[in-house]
């Protein structure tokens, strides 16, 4: 990878700090542990009932599409037909919170399965263009758009937050160093600030 990567071990998270030419700061990547995560899969024939329950019980518009739905600190993104990743803004028993959906869906605890990476900055899209094979132009991938895809051979789910070029990635935990290496290799050119958010 880049000169920056040549000296980084493949088995350790790159340290916090700036990567790239001195004085440049084009992208920030904040790594964080999601407070609570679960996967939700509609039971056979249970999609409509699940959507209704989500609306009534959680106030969540569970779009069966690669989109972000958000209500009351709960974010859901469609990852496949009838499947979602649910992310809570605070720690706690997400499965219990989702219990009203249980008759219509399988709920699987995944809090430890993923790390989160929030990427923003004026060169966020330039960095991501080196790994994401999707058109991230706001016209094609507007705020709230989500995708489950592959970046530098790492499976990811991500969405675009409202606002300027801010993307949140969920990356399988065992791949977190590999993904961070992708970020450093691709972002150093623009000045990448890597931050582990507590």
């Amino acid at each position: 990878m880049t000169a920056a990567l040549d000296i980084l071990p493949v088995t350790q998270m790159p340290a916090d700090g700036p990567y790239g030419p001195a004085g440049t700061h084009g992208v920030t990547a904040r790594l964080f542990d999601p407070p609570a995560l679960a996967t939700l899969a509609a039971r056979r024939g249970g999609g409509i009932a699940l959507a209704a329950a989500a609306r009534v019980e959680l106030g969540l518009d569970l779009a069966d599409a690669p989109r972000l739905s958000r209500a009351d600190g709960l974010s859901a993104i469609g990852t496949a037909p009838g499947r979602w990743l649910l992310l809570a803004g605070t720690e706690g028993d997400l499965a219990a919170r989702l219990a009203p959906l249980a008759p219509h869906a399988a709920i699987t605890e995944q809090t430890d399965a993923y790390v989160g990476v929030e990427i923003d900055g004026p060169h966020a899209r330039d960095l991501l263009a080196k790994g994401v094979s999707l058109d991230l132009d706001p016209a094609a991938f507007p705020p709230g758009a989500a995708a489950t895809t592959n970046v530098a051979h790492v499976n990811v789910s991500f969405w675009r937050e409202p606002g300027e070029d801010r993307f949140v990635f969920l990356v399988a935990r065992s791949y977190r160093v590999a993904f961070a290496r992708f970020l450093v290799a691709s972002g150093a050119e623009y000045g990448l600030e890597l931050v582990h958010r507590g």
Binding site: V10, T11, H153, A185
Partner: peptide, 21 residues
């Protein structure tokens, strides 16, 4: 591209990797 040498493909680390190391 970037995928050469140790980055030919991603390395997956087990939850106890640092402990074992």
């Amino acid at each position: 591209g970037h995928h050469r040498a140790k980055d030919f493909r991603p390395t997956r680390l087990t939850p106890t990797h640092q402990w074992a190391a």
